[in-house]
């Protein structure tokens, strides 16, 4: 479904991505792991067209490298950026409505579903989203992207800075997304959720993929964990 070959990206003169190769199949859950600053977020931003990419990026058989991000979004590639960027002045319901791309087509996710799954959001459906807690904002950003009915959703650091109980809820939501057949690229620093739900994992280091394998393979490979993941 998504095929990335020899992806390079630069911030000014800094060569951030130095030839990333990865692929995600339909319905697959893949995690992209690595320490801070190795280029995980830049990888998804380059795929999404927010950082100019060099290399080839194919999504559902179309070359999307360098397309503006709104066009990529319309092709069915969802993106949940880090920092939980909700629209603070808009209500929870309006935030969700903005995610809808084609109101005529019934997708996998409906507004009522979302509100039913998250009673906290339902209770505040008509209040400004700016007053939500960090965990609620994270749920809202993920739900907002799902409203667009993506076939693959890239989620950047959804659990950063959240309390363990909320991390558990985010993990459950991601598992639910996978259960409904949506492919996921999860960018994470923590191993817990990634190991629990992923079919495959990539580990990044210095702007490249340094390991690819199943959670069991990563568990067995202490060398990779020590060199690239553990602090």
């Amino acid at each position: 479904m998504l095929e990335v070959r020899d992806l390079h990206a630069y911030y000014g003169k800094s060569h951030i991505l130095q030839g990333v190769d990865m692929h995600i199949d339909a319905g697959e859950v893949v995690s992209l792991l690595g320490r801070n600053g190795v280029g995980r977020s830049t990888t998804v931003k380059a795929i999404m067209g927010e950082v100019p990419p060099q290399g080839s990026i194919w999504f559902k058989g179309a070359d999307i490298a360098g397309l503006p991000s709104y066009r990529i979004a319309h092709l069915g590639l969802g993106y949940v950026p880090e920092h939980r960027d909700i629209f603070p002045g808009l209500t929870v319901r309006q935030n969700l409505m903005l995610g809808i791309k084609d109101p005529r087509r019934a997708g996998k996710w409906r507004l009522e579903d979302m509100l039913e799954m998250f009673p906290n959001l339902a209770a505040r459906a008509d209040t400004a989203a700016g007053v939500l807690s960090g965990g609620e904002k994270q749920m809202l950003t993920i739900c907002r992207t799902l409203m667009g009915d993506p076939e693959l959703v890239m989620i950047d650091e959804p659990t950063e800075g959240l309390a363990p109980l909320i991390v558990q809820q985010v993990g459950d939501l991601i598992a639910e997304i996978a259960r409904r057949g949506v492919a996921i690229l999860l960018v994470e620093q923590k191993l817990s959720i990634a190991m629990r739900i992923s079919h495959r994992l990539y580990v990044m280091g210095h702007g490249r993929i340094v390991f690819e394998g199943t959670p069991a393979e990563l568990k067995a490979n202490a060398a990779v964990r020590q060199e690239w993941l553990e602090v």
Partner: peptide, 9 residues
């Protein structure tokens, strides 16, 4: 940027 990523031109 976030608006664009939701498909808004």
């Amino acid at each position: 940027q976030v608006a664009q990523s939701l498909g808004i031109s």
